[in-house]
């Protein structure tokens, strides 16, 4: 592997459409870690919505497109444990019984990583140069935690952010209730789950919640915003890279101020 690997950024559809700043934060961090970053334009979605809705055929068709677009790079990195997990854990399973595609899926899976764990575990990053005056808590997304084994890595890098203090949730391993289509198919149950999560966030006394998956963050920030909470939400990459963007679901505060700048 070259010392300056070429990394294909799997942007994820939510980042592409809702929050490009997460993508640019990922690019910045990857470049700081010595990578050459490309974002293949032949990408839209990893296929997870179809896969989890029982539409295996559509998921396979989409996955084939992703495999073809990404298999030529040294690594595939996603600023999401969920989309990364889809490629790294579920693509091989998706092609069970189809040896040719399964082999390609496994090859891609082997070099696909969630962003922060890639920076720490593969690139050896131990610190970032960034500053945020905030008391933060960190939400582990279920797929980051369970499928991609991301837990210590973001906390380690966050420790190096100047001015940032980290307080743990009481139940950090509990789902926030997003679950992709789950949150719109079962809105009442999902709401109960996210209400528990925002209550846990509030009890830490943190003024900021961070996570590595935009799905969870939109759910959590959307709930905090609906409840009129002042707690801010950012993707962890935005904070580590120090990119400028207002908190998720909040408008730029007049005159900048702490609300507007991670």
């Amino acid at each position: 592997m070259p010392d300056s690997p070429t990394v294909a950024l799997f942007v994820t559809c939510l980042v592409d459409l809702f929050r490009p700043s997460v993508g640019f934060a990922a690019v910045k961090l990857l470049e700081q870690a010595g990578c050459t970053v490309e974002a293949p334009s032949a990408q839209a979605c990893c296929g997870q919505p179809g896969y989890n809705s029982g539409d295996r055929k559509s998921a396979q068709a989409i996955a084939k497109g992703v495999i073809a677009a990404f298999e030529g790079y040294d690594y595939v990195v996603a600023p999401s444990g969920s989309c990364g997990g889809m490629i790294a854990k579920h693509y091989p399973e998706l092609f069970a019984g189809d040896p040719a595609w399964q082999a390609r899926a496994e090859a891609l899976a082997a070099k696909t990583h969630e962003l922060i764990s890639y920076l720490v575990d593969v690139r050896g990053m131990t610190a970032v140069e960034s500053r945020l005056d905030a008391v933060c808590t960190y939400h582990d997304s279920c797929s980051s935690l369970r499928e991609m084994k991301v837990k210590a890595q973001p906390r380690r890098l966050l420790q190096s952010v100047e001015g940032l203090a980290l307080r743990e949730l009481e139940t950090p391993e509990v789902c926030c209730g997003f679950g992709g289509a789950f949150c719109v198919k079962y809105p009442d149950i999902s709401n109960a789950m996210v209400a528990d999560k925002t209550a846990d966030i509030a009890q830490t006394g943190a003024d900021t919640v961070l996570a590595g998956d935009l799905g969870c963050l939109m759910n959590i920030a959307g709930k905090l915003s609906r409840d009129g909470s002042a707690i801010r939400a950012w993707h962890v990459a935005e904070v580590l890279a120090g990119v400028e963007a207002p908190p998720i679901a909040q408008a730029e505060t007049p005159g900048g101020g702490s609300g507007g700048r991670p």
Binding site: P20, F24, A39, P187, M218, N219, S225, A245
Partner: peptide, 21 residues
């Protein structure tokens, strides 16, 4: 409605990542 019944929908920042990229 499944989303906005209980939460606000964060607004997109404007422009897709790929266009900006």
């Amino acid at each position: 409605g499944g989303w906005t019944a209980h939460r606000n929908l964060p607004a997109p920042q404007g422009g897709t990542f790929h266009d900006l990229w």
